[in-house]
Amino acid sequence: MTTVQSSARKTLVLAAVLTAGVVLYLVLLAGRAFALLRSGETVGVVLGVGVLVLPFLGAWMVITTWMSGVRVARLAQRLSEEGGLPDVSDLPRRPSGRVEREAADAYFAKREAELAQAPQDWRAWYRVAHAYDIAGDRRRARDAMKRAVALEAEERNA
């Protein structure tokens, strides 16, 4: 098993454990909501309805997060099979393990240049998302990864 596969397996196990915890919390929360609804008091019923919304909202968030993770994992698997997964193992790191800022900026500049050459290639968007991530810009990383997922789906369906 490669280091990437081992890391992916650990991440998957952690995600499953955290999801189980959230599901347990949502079930307990739903139980409290039904107890409030059964109270028969106006305030209790109103609070029960309000609390009952939270498990549904939480379930939606868990499902969409897992679906996103599955899509990104599919892209990572394809890139791995093609030999194109980003490798930052040679970049200098801080004691915390994060890539040093100057190195992350230089890495990003290379990925951005690749994207400029192939703006409709999901692989370039995946690499740019990864570059944003190592630079610490999670919002842009998510946006770029969404673009990569959409382009890959278009390619697969074409």
Rank of each mutant, 00 (worst) to 15 (best):
G58S: 03
A150M: 11
T64P: 00
L29E: 10
V70Q: 09
E154V: 09
T2I: 01
P119A: 10
R32P: 01
E154K: 15
A104T: 11
V72S: 08
L12T: 13
E102Q: 12
Y25F: 07
R111A: 03
A104P: 07
L47A: 08
A33F: 06
V4Q: 12
T11I: 08
A118Q: 11
A59H: 07
E100D: 07
W125Y: 06
V4P: 05
A118W: 13
K146L: 08
D121P: 15
V149D: 09
E152L: 07
R32C: 01
L57R: 12
V149A: 06
R140Q: 14
T19N: 06
R138P: 03
A20V: 09
S6H: 13
T2P: 12
E112T: 05
G84R: 07
A73G: 12
Y107V: 02
A113W: 01
K146Y: 15
A103C: 03
P95R: 09
Q77D: 10
Y126D: 05
D137S: 11
E81K: 15
P86Y: 04
A104R: 13
V149S: 05
A109R: 15
A118L: 04
A153I: 07
R93K: 12
S96Y: 11
F34E: 13
S80I: 08
V72C: 05
Y25G: 05
S80F: 09
G136W: 06
L24W: 14
G50N: 14
A16C: 05
Q120W: 12
L37N: 00
R32S: 02
A150R: 15
V88R: 12
L57N: 08
G40T: 01
T19S: 04
R111N: 04
A73I: 04
V53N: 03
A116F: 03
V149F: 08
A30K: 04
L115N: 09
R98W: 03
A141R: 11
A15V: 09
T64Y: 10
L57K: 10
A106Q: 15
A150E: 14
E100I: 02
A135C: 08
S39P: 00
Q117W: 05
L37K: 00
P95E: 09
K110H: 03
W125H: 14
R138A: 04
A148Q: 14
A113N: 14
Y25Q: 05
G97L: 07
L26V: 00
D143N: 13
V22R: 00
L28E: 13
K110Y: 01
L29M: 06
R38K: 08
G50R: 12
Y132N: 07
S6V: 02
K110R: 08
V99A: 00
R142D: 06
A158M: 07
R138Q: 09
R74G: 02
A33V: 01
E114N: 09
R139L: 02
L54E: 04
D137H: 14
R32Y: 01
A131D: 10
Y107F: 05
A118N: 12
A135D: 14
V128M: 03
K146S: 13
V22P: 01
A148K: 13
F34N: 14
V99F: 01
K146P: 10
G44Q: 12
L28I: 02
